[in-house]
Design a binder for these strands. Structure first.
Lengths: 125, 125
DNA sequence: CGGAATCCGAATGGATACTG
DNA sequence: CAGTATCCATTCGGATTCCG
């Protein structure tokens, strides 16, 4: 019955890798975009502004490998591939979205803090 | 009254940078560690296994700049510096901890998914 | 003890060209 | 359209050294 104790604070624990992926910049945005429903590769590329096709592919493969995203290929010309969250992916989207919401809600405070910090640490010339 | 609309999906929006920091691998672990209470530099280095002194310093500076962590220096020999979460930092710790919890709770599924994926995509030799 | 600064190899990530 | 494969610049990040 004793389940293994996953400890991301241990550099050798597999959970560390997963936390890395889950905390990845592009993963958060891609999962967030997929929360709206299935999306095609090109749609994701447009939604997640600034992501290169290389990184988008990498991110999607990683999410797919971890069972968070499902990839469906429609045999037709031109090719059509859709990505959508799996049950795991949907459960992950909750804490991820919370992070996104926190960010948006706290931007004013952070911007202020940055200005204060930069003002107090930069003055040299 | 109309607040600015923060959109992390826009590469030029400041919220993108903040989401990046918040989703940073070390940030998540450091904030998590600080949830227990104030910690000294050396204690954090020990808790967050695998982090170099350089990255720990960088991470702490970044968090400090964003007003998430407070740094207190005790004038004594040898030097003593403590870090602790600010109010902002504590509010951030909630979604971050949720992410950590999600990871630990879903590790079994992910490990299984990875094995399945690797088994289906690797076989070449 | 708690850093800052430097050096440098490794990994990241963008741009580009090519394929099914 | 949806990738894969390369090339290459930038960044990351560890190890080391030195300072308050």
């Amino acid at each position: 019955m004793n389940e293994p104790v996953w400890d991301p604070y241990d550099r050798n624990c597999p959970s560390r890798q997963v936390l890395d992926r889950v905390g990845d910049r592009w993963s958060v945005l891609v999962v967030g975009a997929l929360t709206q429903g299935p999306r095609r590769f090109s749609e994701l590329a447009k939604t997640v502004d600034g992501v290169s096709q290389k990184m988008l592919t990498q991110t999607l493969r990683g999410l797919e490998r971890d069972g968070l995203v499902a990839r469906t290929i429609f045999a037709q010309i031109p090719p059509r591939v859709e990505y959508e969250l799996t049950a795991s992916g949907r459960s992950l989207s909750e804490p991820m979205l919370a992070l996104e919401e926190w960010t948006k809600a706290n931007m004013p405070r952070i911007v202020t803090a940055r200005e204060a910090y930069d003002g107090a640490h930069a003055p040299k010339a």
